[in-house]
Amino acid sequence: MSAVTTTAPGLADVFARCRAEGRAALVGYLPVGFPTVEASVAAMRVLVEGGCDVVEVGIPYSDPVIDGPVNQDAMVTALAGGARVDDVFAAVRAVRDAGAVPVAMTYWNPVLRRGVERFAADLAAAGGSGLITPDLVPDEAEDWLAASARHGLDRIFLVAPSSTPDRLEVVTTASSGFVYAASTMGVTGARTSVDSQARGLVEKVRAVCDLPVGIGLGVSTREQAAEIAAYADAVIVGSALVRTLGGEGELADRLEALRSLTEQLAAGVREGRA
């Protein structure tokens, strides 16, 4: 349990280190239970070994309204295979033990069902640093604001290109750790180009707060990672990793492909500010 104590590095440490190294952080997402619970945990270790600074441990959910087909299908597979919310905490622990900073990512109802306080306690006990909440806005987050404060967890809310100045103020005021900026209007999934809106959104967020800003949605290649690393504090990659893990062939080969993609992305976040 030693890593659970306050000495465990958190998101602030990650961003401080990345700043010192003159690069962006790499954040990788995978849902627990895809293709199996055991394989998903092995895959998260691969993300850490391949260079992810932060791993988003996803909770599969029956109705993921901001996810595109790749992540939806992975969640369907995970749930059909019997993945449970309890498995998330074991995965968080595994990421922590592998040496990266784990945060959980979940739609809100699984947290409500467990109880916001109990969920926060369990996540903190497993070594989690925070929680990304794609369908919870701060306006509805009273219980979570209190529970996260009690358990020292970071609150990562999302902003979008549609966010008005008022909304950016509301969201960033409630946020800690970093701000998750959606690069484009839409659902998760790889895109050939990341919207030019992304850079503008990062600037708008920086105008209202001092938190690091990560860009997610649509990032899949080293070149995109480098492009975003030029102006954002973190590059967030999800469905491209999920697609690679869910590809053809033996699991061992797919894990190697995942390692290779992660290494490419890790190189990308180091190139952007050259």
Binding site: I66, P134, V159, T164, R167, A182
Partner: peptide, 11 residues
């Protein structure tokens, strides 16, 4: 309430 992605709040 309003449990939605932030992207929809302005709409």
């Amino acid at each position: 309430g309003r449990y939605v992605p932030e992207a929809l709040v302005p709409a």
